[in-house]
Design a protein around this nucleic acid. Structure first.
Length: 501
RNA sequence: GCAGGCAUAGCUCAGCUGGUUAGAGCGCUAGAUUGUGGAUCUAGAGGUCCCCCGUUCGAACCGGGGUGCCUGUACCA
């Protein structure tokens, strides 16, 4: 009763939040990574490649509001039942590496690393579960000179990618200033306190929600446009006023004068020792920026840069694109942050028990690439020419076609022979779809006379626009020439030269 | 995670108050036009109407649950 067994057919689909990257984007990314690498190398950083998989406990959990432990990380068990995780950033593995090889490393230790990282969380526009980061970190460098260097390097990276000065900004703040503010409004110094965190997160949203939105979040809370309600920090009106004071003291002068921003902050948080320390550190950074010629059109001090609450302990910074652009659907897209970093003096302490100060900067590669693409800064010259296609019209003569392709390749010309099974018309369509500049044709007629027909497909496309009649289109062979078989390379070169960019 | 919306061919979508064989345009494949990409003409392939359960004589359409996508929000190491 052999009933027909249904063969199992898996559905061809990609898991959510992941994507396939096609030729032009792969090439553009490769090129972009090269430019970033050049900048990092110039600053004296050395490459390091750590593994993509680490023991879960080495990556650590440091989210203070851990409602869902282990969320966010892809994990699985090894043969010996130990938990392994895909890395979710490049900093935690660096901390592990430094702790493991501490005694042998030069200190300060400076390394850069580019790599794929994974986060198991809800994807969104421009937010994937697998993406690429490009980091530089300096470990065992206690002074803010290391932080200042990160900021300047961030600016250099963006300019190396042809983002004009003025269209981006490196925005810098200091966690110590924020701690001083919280102290000043009487919230104490418990960094894991819920109100504490809510206040910081509210400040972080100033850019997005504006003064009114932040005010609501600091107080009772805020309703979003779908009607969902976000609970606020529940501060008293005087406290709210003080926080907004701080935020706006950074706003008025931000683009013009770094020293003026620090003066403004000093008035609000200067009474706190930790706040003063933070401001003094930024003043030291300002001196370095200024002497190196990095003005406020590149690096600014900014009140609402907060960053994540997990591990930053000092200066924090974000590289932000300032322009709006439009996506394929014509919607306005604000790019915002394409890189970020800061000082994390506590990360390596997890392993070593001793404090090892460190600071780093991380470029969000995929995001930045998407921005460049919409800016049309993705360089078309990085694309290789499409291959010359040698048509295979006679199955008995494959050896002859192979010889032609090889000749072209040996002459440095990108070329391929048609490897499908269809007729001439389909082969021409294929060449067209590939964007081939030249089709090499050798059929019976050509072979009889020892010649080849070379068709200039670029010129042909231009000609076809003016022709409507089929007979005319076929007979007008303006776009093709006949050359002796021996002149294959020469003839192809000549046509390529016509269209050289 | 929370809130709202959406789900029909590769793509963009139509499909009446539930009614027989679910459609269009574009794209794709092949043929015609003496061995040639465009144009024109002809033919063809391609769908578990997101999935499961239910209501009904009957479900693409109604109800419940699930999944996926979009928007906002939260989080962002």
């Amino acid at each position: 009763m052999a009933k027909e067994q249904k063969t199992f057919r898996p559905k061809a689909r990609l898991p959510k939040g992941l994507r396939d990257v096609t030729a032009s984007m792969v090439r553009a990314e490769t090129r972009m990574l090269g430019l970033i690498r050049d900048v990092y190398e110039r600053y004296g950083f050395d490459p390091l490649e750590t593994s993509t998989i680490e023991y879960a406990d080495a990556l650590g959990k440091f989210l203070p509001d851990e409602d869902r432990p282990n969320e966010g990380v892809f994990s699985f068990q090894d043969d010996d039942e130990q938990w392994l995780s895909l890395r979710y950033d490049l900093t935690a593995p660096l901390a592990r590496y430094v702790a493991e090889h501490y005694d042998g490393l030069p200190k300060p230790f400076r390394r850069y690393q580019v790599g794929t990282v994974w986060r198991n969380e809800k994807p969104g526009p421009g937010r994937f579960r697998q993406f690429t980061q490009f980091d530089a970190d300096t470990v065992a460098a206690p002074t803010v000179a290391a932080d200042a260097e990160m900021c300047m390097m961030g600016a250099d990276v963006l300019e190396a990618l042809s983002i004009p000065r003025g269209q981006y900004r490196i925005r810098v703040n200091n966690r110590k200033v924020l701690d001083g503010l919280l102290e000043e409004i009487g919230l104490g110094s418990d960094a894991t306190d819920r109100t504490h965190m809510t206040v910081l997160r509210s400040i972080d949203k100033f850019d997005k929600l504006g003064r009114r939105g932040v005010e609501l979040l600091l107080g009772a809370g805020r309703k979003d446009e779908s009607g969902d309600f976000t609970k606020g920090a529940g501060l008293a009106p005087e406290q709210i006023a003080r926080v907004l004071d701080y935020v706006e003291s950074g706003l008025t002068a931000a683009s013009s004068d770094r020293a003026a921003v620090l003066e403004g902050w000093r008035k609000v948080v200067g009474a706190s020792a930790i706040g003063r320390e933070g401001i003094d550190e930024l003043a030291a950074m300002d001196a370095l920026f200024t002497s190196a010629g990095y003005g406020p059109d590149r690096i600014e001090f900014n009140s609402w840069i907060v960053r994540g609450l997990g591990y930053y302990t000092g200066p924090v910074f974000e590289a932000e694109l300032l322009f709006d652009t439009r996506d394929e659907d014509g919607n306005t897209v604000r790019f915002g942050s394409v890189g970020s970093g800061g000082r994390y003096d506590g990360l390596i302490e997890r392993f070593k028990g001793v404090k090892v100060p460190a600071t780093g900067f991380s470029v969000g590669v995929s995001r930045l690439l998407a921005a460049l693409q919409l800016l049309q800064k993705v360089d078309a010259a990085a694309e290789p020419d499409a291959p010359v296609v040698v048509l295979t019209l006679d199955a008995a003569n494959m050896a002859g076609y192979q010889a032609m392709v090889t000749e072209l390749r040996q002459a440095g010309i990108r070329a391929e022979m048609y490897l499908g099974g269809s007729g001439m018309r389909a082969q021409m369509k294929y060449a067209d779809k590939r964007g081939a500049p030249v089709a090499v044709i050798e059929g019976e007629d050509e072979r009889a006379t020892g010649s080849l027909t070379l068709k200039d497909l670029v010129l042909g496309a231009e000609v076809s626009a003016t022709i409507e009649d089929n007979a005319e289109w076929r007979q007008s062979q303006a776009a093709q020439i006949s050359v002796p078989r021996a002149k294959l390379v020469e003839g192809v070169r000549e046509i390529l030269a016509r269209h050289r960019r």
